[in-house]
């Protein structure tokens, strides 16, 4: 369905990304309040997400989406499926 994918099986979970990586949202899994909340905060299909950093205890993580900073638990980030994952050279601002 997604002709843009570069490699086979290149979809990955947001929680698998490392600091400084970004990707494009393919879909949001899960259901109920979390899913709706994520969508309302702008986690829409086709939107770029950049992983700014993980908290010192590796959970939660800080993201940049639509030009603002937001933090999700790793557990919640597993629900966000991305493709086009790549390492950003400088900072995440220009990804969006």
């Amino acid at each position: 369905m997604n002709s843009f994918s570069t490699k086979a099986g290149s979809e990955s979970r947001l929680s698998d990304l490392k600091e400084g990586q970004s990707g494009r949202i393919v879909r949001i899994g899960g259901h109920g309040a979390l899913r709706r909340r994520l969508l309302e905060m702008g986690f829409l299909k086709g939107t770029q997400v950049y992983v700014e950093k993980y908290a010192p205890l590796k959970d939660p993580l800080e993201l940049i989406i639509k030009g603002y900073h937001i933090s999700l638990r790793v557990e919640e980030a597993t629900q966000v499926i991305l493709d086009n994952v790549r390492q950003e050279l400088s900072n995440g601002r220009e990804t969006n």
Binding site: G32, A33, L34, R37, L38, M41, P60, E62, Y68, H69, I70, S71, L72, R73, E76
Partner: peptide, 12 residues
């Protein structure tokens, strides 16, 4: 009950 989603903005 459901843990409220953590989803938290980190404002400037």
């Amino acid at each position: 009950g459901m843990d409220a989603p953590f989803v938290m903005e980190l404002p400037p």
